[in-house]
Design a protein around this nucleic acid. Sequence first.
DNA 1: CAATTAACGCACTAACTAGTTACTTCTTTA
DNA 2: TAAAGAAGTAACTAGTTAGTGCGTTAATTG
Lengths: 217, 217
Amino acid sequence: MSGEQTEKPGRKPRIRDAEATKARILDAAKKEFAKNGLGGARVDDIAEKAKANKRMIYHYFESKEGLFQTVLEDAYLDIRSAEQKLHLEDLDPKGALEKLVRFTWEYYLKNPEFLTLVNSENLHRAKHLKKSEIIKVSSRKLVSLVSSILERGVTAGVFRDGVDPVQLNITIAAVGYYYLTNRFTGTIIYERDLMAKDALEQRIQFNIDTIMRLVTI
Amino acid sequence: MSGEQTEKPGRKPRIRDAEATKARILDAAKKEFAKNGLGGARVDDIAEKAKANKRMIYHYFESKEGLFQTVLEDAYLDIRSAEQKLHLEDLDPKGALEKLVRFTWEYYLKNPEFLTLVNSENLHRAKHLKKSEIIKVSSRKLVSLVSSILERGVTAGVFRDGVDPVQLNITIAAVGYYYLTNRFTGTIIYERDLMAKDALEQRIQFNIDTIMRLVTI
DNA sequence: CAATTAACGCACTAACTAGTTACTTCTTTA
DNA sequence: TAAAGAAGTAACTAGTTAGTGCGTTAATTG
């Protein structure tokens, strides 16, 4: 997010700041896209909330869809980079897996926009993500992270052999994602406040249990 | 779907058929809402695809949101009624649970509109479902279905005690729903065709395994 | 069969929406 | 310091969009 113009540290604050404007637009866009979806979000609203002129959006991002693509890429890069920062390779297999399940849950909980952005992208059959090469590269790292945890666990005799790392990855995401993205209908269907503090604690424990039982011998 | 006017069995076919028109509108609306979301769907397109006049939509359903609400209610009632028709009470606990997991998966697979409709409703914070009393009633039946399978399993000594039926229910839905609703981004992230025949078979087996391990002692 | 009711359709509108044109103002650098 | 270029703005356009007013035609019923 910090661009070419911020090299000199001691420079005076600019009134005209391209990077800051861009960042404000991206931040506002993320919120609007998450709240209303790609189709429901309004470019005028994004401009207003970013305290920028609508013209600037087209100047920096070319189109509404171009803006959406950047927002989506940034969102994926953020979670992928956070996963790498967990340093799961330093933990024992069981501890690493539990930490990943917990992290995934907490990330979704703190960044609900991520869930809505992904839903919106899937409604559009991933047409924006398809164009992004950087996303593929960073995704591979996640899969190999889980692979290596599984392998270490099998070697240590604590995990069973033959668990597909991709299926495991999907399941770790699924048990948290579904609960949180469908929290509104879920609260009605199950007649229970799924977002109450104790309900959230119960769920993360349940999810850890689910995943641990899945890999245990 | 069959209304008051169809009482007499031997009547002549009508050129003007309110029930048939309503049904065509609902069918077209379901497809359009599923494809584009509530915000993205176009009333004109729904009318055209239903081979009805737009005026009829407002005549029968009052508004675009009224139409969406009806579509959503019908979708929920359909899956809830199909679940009841499984007669899981006639099967042993393990068989019943496996059948429910398999049914849920196959229902999502055959009715992908259901997933998108639910996503759309959650984007709108369940404001339409909130108004629907009939949905709450039919949901209770699903929860008690799973509860009784669990109880029977515990009594028979095949399931462990203390598994929350709501959490189990959510998890059964989650492992299928997430995989299918995010199939477009998933195919990119995991660089694997998630909808290939063998991939789908692998997933349902994995899901059954996940759920069985979760409830087994 | 006349009168009423319900189904249906055309054509319109008022508000909105993504994107643009043409311009001003600030900042950098040759 | 002058010129160039980049940042920023207001007002506009062309096309959409949900929703309606009002008239027509078919079916029902007394």
